[in-house]
Structures are given as C-alpha cells and as structure tokens.
Design a protein around this nucleic acid. Structure first.
Length: 294
DNA sequence: CACTTGACCTGTCCGC
DNA sequence: TGCGGACAGGTCAAGT
C-alpha cells in the first residue's frame, strides 16, 4: 500500500519530527524486521543524531551524523508513527486515526530518543525491513540498483520512459508501470488511477500503445502522484502518516475501489477485474479494451 | 532474456 | 458461531 505518495507523506511528517533527535535505544521483535549486527547498532545508531529524512522510490532514508543511515521499506503494511514524549495514543481524532495505544501487536521496531519521544515501526505482515547502512553505500544497495527514475523529478523524460517500456513490448501496460525499473514508486492504486486519467486499458500491450497514448501516460503519472501527495496519500486498509492518521486521496479517486460506481468522466459503471495478477479497476467506456487480446 | 507465477506473512471478509 | 479459503498488495526467487 505505501506507494510513492504515501511514503512521501510520511517523509514530510518525519522530517519535521526527527531532525535533531538523538537515538537513545532501539528495540525489535525479530531479526527479520531489523537485521543488523549488534556492534554496528551500538557504534553507529545508539547516540547518533538524525540529520535529514529523504526518499527514493518507496524507500525512506534517515541519515545520521555517524555517516550511517536507516533505510526503511514499508512494503505493504508498514507504518512509521512518531509519538512525542508528551502525547499518548488512543486520543487521536476518531475519524482519521487508525492507531490505538502503542506499541501494539504489529509493532516490530521501536526507536526511543533522548527526549523520550519514540518512533514505532509497525508491520502487520512482516514484509517490510529496516537496515542500518553506511550513508555512502545507500545508493549502491541491490534494491536501488534496478530502480528507474523518480517520476516527479526532471530525469523523468518522455523519451526515457519510452525507451524503458520498449524493453518489455509484450507485457501489459499495467504490469510495465508496476515494474520499478521502468519508473520508481508506482504501485497498484496509482497504476489504476493514472491509466484511467490517460484513458488506456490496463491490459493493453506495450507494443500496441501509440505515441499519443504513451504521451498521455507520461503526463498522467506526475499529475496523479502530486494530487495524491497533496491529499496525504491513500488509506485503503493500513496506511497512516507519521501522526497515525489516514490519507484522503481515495475520496477523490477516479477508479480505485470504485467498482460498480459511475466513472467521474463519463458515468459508465467502473469494473473490477484482474490484470497482472492484481485487482484492477477501470472504466470500460473511457478505457476500451484493445482489439488484439493477450 | 522477457514475462508470469508463487512465496513471503497476517488479518479480514465471505460463504457454508 | 466456527472454519476453510480467497484476498489484500511490494518485491524477489523460481518457473515457463
């Protein structure tokens, strides 16, 4: 669930709260959630002060003044929730908070800071991870080596997108934009959303896309992602921001989770099917199925 | 190499 | 009410 807009929303929140915090302790439930050796933790994490919080693709990077960084992937159910030492959970606004008292049974890692504030890494399904890595090595970790350009940066050019898509002409366009080496940060929610904006059926083969359609796709990507960031991301089930609060984007969604409801553009009934192994929402009128089937 | 499917996990929901 | 099974979706490994 956390895709680029959700991770970016968390980043914005965390960079307000975490910069200048000094790590006093770290606790975790299993090595899977935080697989580091104790020596490095003691030497480069405990006592370190956070200098900045950045993001690449769906990954958060928390830099420390020891020249190490915490690199965090939330995968599908990860949450990073900050609790200042004066607040206690359970008192959040009932309609926008999903979080009760922390820690709870999905808490995997707890960072405690010198001022007694805490950062909770919750992850129901244990797919996510936190790693402590020398800052200089972060761009070279295996995960980043195969990640495509940031879709909100100047490096996301039309020609570049076209070139990377042409490498996989026989795949459906939805599968292709979910491929993180084509473009970074898009997941299931925004794939459906931006294909609707671009008026492309998700099962269309890449080789069938006209230049005009490719251009619409390229233009739709930053439009949808920026709107989602502006609305604090999407809460489908688990996602919350650094304050433990839900995102608003799904209130404005074009198709995602809107099966059997009218298309915002034409009023036709939105359908849900399966494409690229994922639940997929589309408008049969605005996004007609291409004639040559897979 | 291009592309698809299953595994990793846990919780929820649906039908019987 | 309990219980099995499908489903959720990001990434990687294994399969075609």
């Amino acid at each position: 669930m956390p895709e680029l807009p959700e991770v970016e929303t968390i980043r914005i929140g965390l960079s307000q709260y975490l910069v200048d915090e000094t790590v006093k302790a770290v606790d975790f439930d299993t090595p899977k959630s935080f697989p580091n050796n104790t020596t490095q933790v003691k030497q480069f994490l405990i006592g370190a002060t956070i200098t900045r919080v950045t993001r690449r693709a769906k990954v958060l990077i928390i830099d420390l003044d020891t020249d190490y960084s915490l690199v965090i992937h939330l995968k599908m159910t990860g949450q990073l929730i900050f609790q200042s030492h004066t607040e206690r959970w359970g008192g959040g606004h009932p309609t926008d908070s999903l979080i009760g008292q922390l820690p709870d049974r999905s808490t995997r890692v707890i960072f405690t800071f010198a001022d007694r504030s805490k950062l909770f890494f919750n992850d129901q399904r244990k797919f996510g991870w936190v790693r402590l890595i020398p800052t200089i090595e972060v761009p070279n970790i295996d995960f980043f080596k195969k990640i495509g350009p940031e879709p909100l940066g100047p490096e996301f050019t039309f020609e570049g997108l076209k070139t990377r898509l042409k490498r996989r002409p026989k795949s459906g366009i939805k599968a292709a934009i979910l491929d993180q080496s084509v473009v970074a940060g898009i997941g299931n929610i925004y794939a459906d959303e931006l294909l609707h904006l671009a008026k492309i059926h998700p099962a269309t083969l890449v080789s069938q896309l006209s230049t005009a359609k490719l251009k619409r796709l390229w233009q739709a990507i930053p439009v949808v992602l920026r709107l989602a960031i502006k609305n604090g991301g999407s809460t489908d089930r688990n996602y919350v921001n650094a304050d433990g609060k839900k995102g608003n984007y799904l209130n404005f969604a074009r198709v995602f989770r809107r099966e059997d409801l009218p298309c915002p553009d034409c009023g036709a009934i939105i359908q849900k099917t399966r494409v690229a192994g994922r639940g997929t929402h589309f408008c049969p009128h605005c996004q007609p199925k291409p004639r040559i089937k897979k």
